[in-house]
Design a protein around this nucleic acid. Sequence first.
DNA 1: ACAAAAGTGTTTCAAATACACCCATGT
DNA 2: ACATGGGTGTATTTGAAACACTTTTGT
Lengths: 219, 219
Amino acid sequence: MNTPASFNVATDIVVFTIRADTLNVLLIERAGQPFKGSWALPGGFLNNDEGLDQCAARELAEETGVGDVYLEQLASFGDPGRDPRGGVVSVAYFALVPADEHALRAASDAASARWFAFDDLPELAFDHAVILHAAHARLKAKLDYSTIAFCLLPAEFTLSNLQTVYEIIKAETLDKRNFRKWVLALDVLQETGEKRVEGAHRPAMLYREKNPGTIKIIR
Amino acid sequence: MNTPASFNVATDIVVFTIRADTLNVLLIERAGQPFKGSWALPGGFLNNDEGLDQCAARELAEETGVGDVYLEQLASFGDPGRDPRGGVVSVAYFALVPADEHALRAASDAASARWFAFDDLPELAFDHAVILHAAHARLKAKLDYSTIAFCLLPAEFTLSNLQTVYEIIKAETLDKRNFRKWVLALDVLQETGEKRVEGAHRPAMLYREKNPGTIKIIR
DNA sequence: ACAAAAGTGTTTCAAATACACCCATGT
DNA sequence: ACATGGGTGTATTTGAAACACTTTTGT
């Protein structure tokens, strides 16, 4: 048997958040070749002494300042020619950032990092459009069988906030009474006892997760 | 920015089949170092001119003679130290082989290929035990929301055959009438009109998939 | 008083579950 | 005739879906 081919292994991260009642994705403008000036997913190359999850978390922090968020491996992409430099295999991740943490940073090989509305995206470098849509499909599917959507909200939120997250991602309206019945029956929320006054209407009860950061698989 | 580290990228494949009413996994005995003589998942290194799926299919055919089966990417594993040679990232796949195709071949770097009962496995090389259990979890979960189980049966099969597959993988018994009602309501099966005589009892109607090889997502 | 979002129950329908007997065949 | 797995229907329970009005606040 001959010696195996060498590759650079990268991680690319699809970072979702909710901003102004729309689903947003974090993109960086590429500072170097190839695709200089194009928008791309944040990410970068794997080092010898780190694992894949670690690499994704590190690149995300370095390039965008986003840290300590939900991060899950999505899939790997290795078609020859997906990177014009050749020999690059990418392990894609997706991340969920709470709706209130939008402070971004640009650094190292990323000229700038910006949020884009999911349904108004620019042309993307490499095969990143494919990766992005795979991530969206996964997110949408996971709403139905996990409590992953909670990661898109701050620690305290109203049931209406939560319902809005579901409605945005599923792109359909939900019945308020049925939604509340369903989510409360999951037995993962507790009332804080506090209310949030916000505008000229009745204040809403604030809730928090019983086990913050724990994703529950439903059914 | 410094130049990125180099890796060898491998695919490892968890091949499931049903034999003698048990779930079986295909393992190869390693012919070379490291872990020479240990049992491991079939798989091998990615070439420069092929995609990941292609690599998995090729390695499977080369090492075991298994070809033209259901093959799906599972996840990637890249912890430093998962391979004592260092710098090896593995993209894991899982495959499903119909219950009647068990002809195996040993070749190249695999001394021999053998089926093992899933609940009587030997010690495995590398992190292959972790990969294998991830594959099993995925298979089990996918039974509930897809018609993937059909890939474990030959083209023509009885409803009892199918029920047995579900019972083996889910490790629970199912009600015969409810199972048949459910599977027929999926509207993916058609009667062949033929019956299979097998032993001292009433012959069973044979069915086939309406769209062979098409995995339907349920719900 | 009005606008705007919060909060709250019941009825209807569909799907999942529980459950027991007769049928066709080989020996 | 008997042993073996194949084949079939109904009643019950459970969860999902449809649906409208009252409450609390700010202006």
